[in-house]
Design a protein around this nucleic acid. Structure first.
Lengths: 136, 136
DNA sequence: TCCTACGATGGACCAGGTCCAAGTCAATAC
DNA sequence: GTATTGACTTGGACCTGGTCCATCGTAGGA
């Protein structure tokens, strides 16, 4: 946790109360929060924090590679603090709950050259869909 | 093409000029259009068509299983008329171009029970990312 | 040809997100 | 400790993609 703050400081991040709170919120619970949920949680610790700052900070964390954005529906993006361990997602079609999963195999290797159309392929995201035990 | 219109009529779809135009636009070019692009193309054939109608019609085609929605960025949904042949997508990180791809293997089988968390897993979407030849 | 329920219209509205000018403050220099 | 300054924050306007709704129009059956 303080790891994250250390890393950010080490990269020349100017440490402000707002950024610390946003980073702590994300790092605290390893769930996949929307920007609005991050804002809500941040607000309880730092009531004056603004929406723009939360969006800015999330954007910076993403470009620093500390969190990743996931879009599982067409709605709000979610922010995944577990960026250092590669993984995919399993999403409940009813309630939207998200779990991190680690499928076997190498999906990149499963895309033959004939199916690459000259693209320089660099990565792949997999989204498994299903119904979670609570919704079943 | 007229296949599609036939199928829809067979399912009790009331055939209107607007629905026909939307279906034809989608079925005509097998690319992945946004709702706004569908609207633009539809408008050239039927100038009075409204945005709401395009959204309604796209929504119906999706629930009939004739087209699928794909969200590759957090922006506009795209509509994929190639719903009857299962496939995944390869997206250019620079320009957003999308190609349909058919990877080897069975990604569903690659998710071990221990990684399913009690979900009834029903499907998986794979989005390959890379840079297309035009952008390279 | 008439009737009517289903579909289309357009304009208001909403959610998620971005932008910007002005004010604030963390970090450096002294 | 204080001054300085450029990076950061703020709040509100604005934008895009999408939905809703009251009203009007029309496809298709009788």
């Amino acid at each position: 946790m303080s790891d994250l703050l250390e890393r950010l400081r080490g990269r020349g991040w100017r440490m402000t109360a707002q950024r610390r709170v946003v980073a702590e919120v994300l790092d605290g619970e390893h769930v996949h929060l929307t920007a609005d949920e991050v804002l809500a949680r941040a607000t309880t610790r730092l009531p004056e924090i603004s929406r723009a700052t939360v969006y800015n900070t999330l954007g910076e964390l993403v470009s620093l590679g500390e969190v990743t954005e996931v879009t599982t529906d067409g709605r709000a993006k979610r922010y995944d603090p577990n960026a250092h361990r590669p993984h995919h997602h399993l999403v409940c079609s009813r309630c939207g709950a998200i779990r991190d999963v680690h499928p076997d195999g190498d999906p990149l290797a499963d895309l033959p050259a004939s199916e690459r159309f000259g693209f320089a392929v660099s990565g792949v995201e997999m989204t498994y869909r299903g119904v979670c035990p609570d919704c079943a």
